[in-house]
């Protein structure tokens, strides 16, 4: 091993340590008997018990799950349509604008998205009387809009990568475009849509800033409750909550990744590989 590749390896593994050390400490101290974060007071699961007896956290968690479910579902519809339009229709009015606007929420600072949507909702209520007040509905709309951006990216890469001859064959056989979409395109891109839905769902579950702007009285999401707790310092029940979230997400990712990996391997087996051999270093 050359010195430069050793250096590379060490820095890269330090990078992974940097990524995972805080998460690991979060998990370890969620099982700490003591309320002090740095003093180990023995193994305990009492913070998990405290978590499930906290009505504020449970209520906020339920609201967040509902918002996540509906916003992710709308995001998949909008994002998939946008991706389909952008990858299949080469010329139409507003194409450049659509491709820019669908991707913009990916980098736009949250405070700007939150403020602008709130002002829109206020103006709309003023002009049309809808939406009446703000709350779960307005958060769902806001989350669906930025979730659609992520879905569109995921769906578009799949749509561009898929074999067009399938769609062409169906069209040549006289299938209506709508039928082609539902019978051919949709099943092929379905795995991408599932991961797009999950991405939109987790992002919705995680968002503090946008939801804080567009929410109304009575609709406190989980991140809002966590944020108000955490501002006052470290609290072990938040560690317990974080551990649950990390555990569920990790299991989900592992299942999804092994599925994708298997699908990719099957595809590679079916198609002749044109990749050069990996080097053995």
């Amino acid at each position: 091993m050359t010195p430069s590749s050793l250096f590379l390896r060490i820095t890269a593994w330090l990078g992974f340590l940097f990524l995972y050390a805080p998460i690991a400490s979060l998990v370890i101290f969620s099982f700490n008997e003591s309320k002090l974060v740095t003093v180990w007071g023995g193994f305990s699961t009492k913070w998990y018990g405290a978590l499930f007896r906290d009505p504020q956290i449970l209520a906020a968690g339920w609201i967040s799950l509902k918002i996540g479910f509906f916003s992710a579902t709308i995001a998949v519809v909008i994002g998939t349509l946008a991706a389909y339009v952008l990858s299949r229709f080469s010329r139409f009015r507003g194409r450049t604008w659509l491709s820019g606007a669908i991707a913009a929420p990916l980098v736009m600072p949250d405070v700007i998205i939150g403020l602008s949507l709130l002002l829109l909702f206020v103006a709309m209520e003023h002009l049309f009387g809808w939406p009446q007040g703000r709350g779960i509905l307005t958060i769902v709309i806001a989350h669906a809009t930025f979730g659609a951006a992520y879905v569109a990216v995921v769906a578009q890469s799949r749509l561009v990568g898929m074999d067009l001859s399938l769609e062409e064959a169906a069209e040549d056989l006289g299938a209506h475009p709508v039928r082609v979409f539902f019978d051919i395109t949709l099943p092929v891109i379905a795995p991408a849509l599932v991961s797009g839905w999950l991405l939109a769902f987790t992002l919705s579950l995680d968002d503090l800033v946008i939801a804080s702007f567009v929410t109304g009285p009575g609709a406190s999401t989980l991140p809002m409750v966590i944020f108000s707790k955490v501002r006052l310092g470290v609290s072990p029940d938040v560690n317990a909550l974080a551990t649950l979230v990390i555990g569920i997400v990790s299991i989900g990712i592992l299942v999804a990744a092994s599925n994708l990996h298997r699908a990719a391997r099957d595809k590679e087996d079916a198609a002749p590989s044109h990749r050069t051999n990996e080097d053995m270093s």
Binding site: P22, L26, L205, D206, I226, F227, V234, V238, A242, I246
Partner: peptide, 13 residues
Amino acid sequence: WTSFLLRVYAWIG
């Protein structure tokens, strides 16, 4: 994929 807010929180500890 895990919460952004919770990852920032981890650094407080």
